[in-house]
Design a protein around this nucleic acid. Structure first.
Length: 229
DNA sequence: GCGACAG
DNA sequence: ATCTTGTCGC
C-alpha cells in the first residue's frame, strides 16, 4: 500500500482546533447501544471526486438480509474542505446527508465507508454521520486510522481486536472478509455497538472483499460519475 | 525529533 | 480519494 505519501498543503492550525472542538461537542450526542430490532433495510454510502473540487456522494439501500438493491441516489457539490486525517467527515458528511435526504426508503442502519469510533476522538465519519442523521451507523474501513492490532488469520472470518494503545479500550475489529486479502476495519458508530457492527458486516459478505452496501455504493459512484462529468 | 496518517 | 499497465496467483 502507501508506505509513503507526498506532503500536501499544511492544514491551518486554527481550523484544526475549531474542528476538534466541534467533534468533542458532537461526541456528547453519540449513543452506543445494540440495534433496537433486526434491520429490514441496510444502507451504504460512498463519496468520490469527479474533479478535484467536486464531491459526488452516493447512498444505496438494500433489503436485509436478501441484500437486493432497493434504491440508489446521489448528490454532488463543490468541495469546501481539504482532506486532513482525522477530520474526513467535515469534507464529506455534508454532501452525504444531502444524498440521504433524497431517499424514498430510509434504511434501519447504515454501513459507512470509513471508521466509526476507531478514531482518535471516537468520532470517525460513521459516528459523525450517525449523530447528524440520528440514524444507526457503523464503519467499515479499508485502512487503519488509529489503534493497535495483531494481523488476523488468513481465512475469511478471522478477526482480531483493534484497541487503543494507551488505554486498551476496544475500538473495533480487524476482519479478513475474504481469504488472503487485506483485512477490513469494522467499528461501532451511533446507536450500533461493536457486536452488531461485526455481525451485520459478516451478513453482508457475498464472496467479495467488500460487503455489499459499500461495494454497491462504490459501483454506483462510478456510474453516476459519468452522468455528472 | 521521528513516524503515522480513514477517504 | 485520484492518477495509471502490466502482471502474478488461484
Amino acid at each position: 500500500m502507501a508506505y509513503y505519501r507526498p506532503p500536501g498543503p499544511p492544514p491551518d492550525p486554527a481550523l484544526v482546533r475549531s474542528l476538534t472542538q466541534q467533534q468533542l461537542a458532537l461526541r456528547e450526542r453519540l449513543r452506543l447501544e445494540p440495534l433496537a430490532q433486526a434491520p429490514r433495510f441496510i444502507g451504504g454510502c460512498d463519496s468520490s471526486f469527479p474533479t478535484p473540487d467536486t464531491i459526488l456522494s452516493v447512498f444505496v439501500v438494500l433489503a436485509f438480509p436478501s441484500l437486493e438493491l432497493v434504491e440508489k441516489v446521489y448528490s454532488y457539490a463543490p468541495v469546501t474542505m481539504p482532506y486532513v486525517p482525522g477530520y474526513l467527515s467535515f469534507r464529506e458528511a455534508g454532501n452525504v446527508v444531502q444524498a440521504f435526504a433524497k431517499l424514498q426508503q430510509h434504511p434501519d442502519v447504515v454501513m459507512v465507508d470509513g471508521h466509526g469510533v476507531a478514531h482518535p476522538r471516537r468520532l470517525g465519519i460513521a459516528a459523525h454521520l450517525g449523530v447528524l442523521l440520528d440514524v444507526p451507523t457503523f464503519g467499515v474501513a479499508k485502512h487503519k486510522l488509529f489503534g493497535t492490532y495483531q494481523e488476523p488469520g488468513p481465512t475469511k472470518g478471522d478477526v482480531t481486536p483493534l484497541t487503543d494503545p494507551k488505554t486498551g479500550e476496544l475500538l473495533g475489529e480487524v476482519l479478513r472478509s475474504k481469504d488472503k486479502v487485506q483485512p477490513l476495519f469494522v467499528s461501532a458508530g451511533h446507536r450500533c455497538d461493536q457486536a452488531t457492527a461485526l455481525r451485520l458486516t459478516l451478513a453482508c459478505l457475498r464472496g467479495y472483499k467488500l460487503p455489499e452496501p459499500t461495494r454497491l455504493a462504490d459501483h454506483w459512484a462510478e456510474e453516476f460519475k459519468k452522468e455528472v462529468r
